[in-house]
Lab assay of single mutants.
Amino acid sequence: VPQRAWTVEQLRSEQLPKKDIIKFLQEHGSDSFLAEHKLLGNIKNVAKTANKDHLVTAYNHLFETKRFK
């Protein structure tokens, strides 16, 4: 089981690129989880459509539901 890579403050910070969060989610989330949160596909394309709040919610949801690969 992966550990949380970032704190809530870090997740919301401008310093953390959306692409980093997407990469983490794609590496650790199950396909059904990723599909549900519309996070499947090319990281660049996902970054265009997903806002930061959406990614933070998905990140927290992944750990709450433990839907890891």
Results as ranks from 00 to 15, higher is better:
residue 59 Y to I: 03
residue 11 L to G: 02
residue 42 N to V: 10
residue 22 I to K: 01
residue 35 A to K: 12
residue 63 F to N: 02
residue 9 E to C: 06
residue 54 H to M: 14
residue 13 S to E: 06
residue 31 D to F: 13
residue 47 A to Y: 08
residue 17 P to R: 11
residue 29 G to T: 01
residue 9 E to K: 05
residue 31 D to N: 15
residue 5 A to S: 10
residue 21 I to M: 04
residue 47 A to C: 11
residue 39 L to S: 00
residue 64 E to F: 08
residue 28 H to L: 05
residue 66 K to L: 09
residue 44 K to M: 15
residue 19 K to P: 08
residue 26 Q to F: 06
residue 60 N to W: 06
residue 4 R to C: 10
residue 30 S to H: 10
residue 34 L to R: 03
residue 63 F to L: 03
residue 53 D to K: 06
residue 10 Q to M: 10
residue 12 R to T: 09
residue 32 S to T: 12
residue 52 K to M: 05
residue 10 Q to V: 06
residue 63 F to R: 01
residue 43 I to P: 12
residue 42 N to W: 10
residue 50 A to R: 07
residue 58 A to N: 01
residue 19 K to D: 15
residue 45 N to Q: 14
residue 11 L to R: 01
residue 29 G to M: 01
residue 42 N to M: 11
residue 14 E to I: 09
residue 26 Q to M: 08
residue 22 I to Q: 02
residue 53 D to E: 14
residue 67 R to C: 11
residue 50 A to L: 13
residue 47 A to R: 14
residue 35 A to N: 09
residue 42 N to S: 12
residue 51 N to V: 10
residue 4 R to V: 05
residue 41 G to H: 05
residue 36 E to P: 01
residue 37 H to A: 05
residue 10 Q to W: 03
residue 48 K to D: 13
residue 46 V to W: 04
residue 5 A to K: 15
residue 59 Y to L: 03
residue 39 L to E: 00
residue 51 N to A: 10
residue 22 I to T: 02
residue 51 N to W: 06
residue 45 N to P: 03
residue 67 R to T: 07
residue 39 L to W: 01
residue 17 P to E: 10
residue 67 R to L: 09
residue 65 T to K: 10
residue 48 K to N: 11
residue 60 N to M: 12
residue 60 N to F: 11
residue 23 K to H: 09
residue 51 N to H: 11
residue 5 A to P: 15
residue 56 V to D: 02
residue 68 F to E: 02
residue 57 T to G: 10
residue 13 S to A: 05
residue 66 K to M: 14
residue 43 I to N: 05
residue 3 Q to K: 13
residue 61 H to D: 15
residue 29 G to S: 09
residue 15 Q to S: 13
residue 67 R to Y: 06
residue 12 R to K: 12
residue 55 L to Q: 00
residue 52 K to G: 03
residue 66 K to T: 06
residue 64 E to T: 09
residue 44 K to Y: 15
residue 15 Q to D: 11
residue 24 F to S: 02
residue 55 L to E: 00
residue 32 S to R: 12
residue 8 V to I: 10
residue 55 L to A: 03
residue 59 Y to K: 01
residue 24 F to T: 02
residue 10 Q to N: 05
residue 37 H to T: 05
residue 66 K to W: 06
residue 3 Q to N: 11
residue 57 T to F: 13
residue 41 G to Q: 04
residue 55 L to N: 00
residue 45 N to E: 13
residue 63 F to G: 01
residue 2 P to I: 06
residue 17 P to C: 09
residue 31 D to Y: 13
residue 21 I to Y: 01
residue 34 L to S: 01
residue 26 Q to K: 07
residue 19 K to M: 13
residue 28 H to G: 02
residue 44 K to N: 15
residue 40 L to T: 11
residue 43 I to R: 08
residue 40 L to I: 12
residue 53 D to F: 07
residue 1 V to G: 10
residue 31 D to L: 13
residue 59 Y to Q: 00
